[in-house]
């Protein structure tokens, strides 16, 4: 991991996003080297809940342990070892939690959008469940981003909150998550909820480039990006390392949370189906007896 980031420090902003993609999309693309003779078309091979539970169950301890270890290491490094900033002092340490949370807020929404496409176009049943489970986790990370940003803004800028384009667009992202959480659970027929939620999530995707480029397109109080794909990060390397660790760790934690929740959702759906089948059998038996 370390060698990779030091070799291409500029490429590291995309790393959590790409990893997120892989993990959220675990339902469909995780096991690309799956048995070749599996029936059906490539995507629906992973719609089998039993296979998903096996794969996700095997993956879960790695995601959880990796996420916990990397996050803990990064946070301790950032809090204790990393140097203070020449002008911000120790307040710069809030960056090590604020920036990863911000990346995950956007990357999680991207994962939600991917699930929504899978749900709308391919009617993938696991994508529906995953979309419903990504929402609350993404909202939590967006909330962390907003709260820690506020805690950073007060001592540095002199204000808890300002209505500049970056802060406002992230607040809109938060509301998009909340709207999705509410909408996807708002219907008696879950399928309609999944469709409506997917459409809302996809419309909300226009907000992602706005968040990313708001600091370049408009005058904002928020500073522009420190880490870009094109240039060297304008950050001291001793500060970049803990940030890389917490970013990777947070990504794994996000993936672990979504995986665990989706596993539970798959089992809960199976429980509902079994209960309904049992009730129908009982109904039938009563009718036969009468």
């Amino acid at each position: 991991m370390t060698a990779e980031t030091s070799a291409a420090p500029g490429g590291f902003e995309m790393a959590p996003r790409a990893a997120m993609f892989r993990s959220v999309d675990a339902l469909s693309s995780l096991a690309t080297p799956a048995p070749p003779k599996a029936p059906g078309r490539s995507l629906h091979r992973f719609a089998n809940p039993g296979r998903f539970l096996r794969l996700a169950g095997a993956l879960q301890p790695w995601l959880t342990a990796g996420g916990l270890i990397l996050t803990a290491a990064g946070l301790v490094w950032g809090l204790v070892v990393a140097p203070a900033d020449w002008q911000q002092g120790d307040a710069v340490r809030i960056m090590y939690v604020h920036v990863p949370a911000a990346w995950l807020a956007s990357a999680g929404y991207l994962g939600l959008a991917v699930c929504s496409v899978l749900s709308l176009v391919w009617r993938h049943p696991l994508a529906d469940l995953a979309a419903a489970e990504i929402g609350p986790v993404g909202a939590a990370f967006t909330g962390i981003c907003l709260a820690t940003g506020s805690l950073w803004g007060k001592p540095m800028w002199g204000a808890w909150w300002v209505w500049d384009a970056r802060l406002t667009s992230v607040l809109v992202l938060f509301f998009l998550y909340l709207g999705h959480i509410a909408l996807i659970r708002a219907f008696d027929d879950p399928t309609r909820g999944y469709r409506a939620g997917a459409i809302l999530a996809l419309v909300g995707v226009v907000n992602l480039p706005i968040i990313k480029f708001s600091v370049d397109w408009w005058n904002t109080l928020h500073q522009p990006a420190t880490i870009s794909l094109t240039g060297a990060p304008s950050m001291y390397l001793g500060m970049l390392w803990p940030l890389a660790l917490t970013a990777l760790g947070y990504t794994l934690v996000f993936a672990a949370l979504v995986t665990a929740r989706t596993r539970a959702a798959v089992m809960e759906r199976r429980i509902r189906a079994l209960l309904m089948a049992a009730a129908a059998r009982e109904d039938g038996a009563v009718q036969v007896a009468a």
Binding site: D85, W86, W157, L221, Q223
Partner: peptide, 28 residues
């Protein structure tokens, strides 16, 4: 009525900033 400070996107430790200033590479 209100003044907010904007900080830039560079993050560097105090000693690095001092070194740059001493060498005349940067005047903040």
């Amino acid at each position: 009525a209100e003044v907010l400070a904007k900080h830039d996107e560079t993050y560097m430790p105090k000693d690095v900033a001092e070194a740059l200033k001493q060498k005349g590479l940067w005047n903040p």
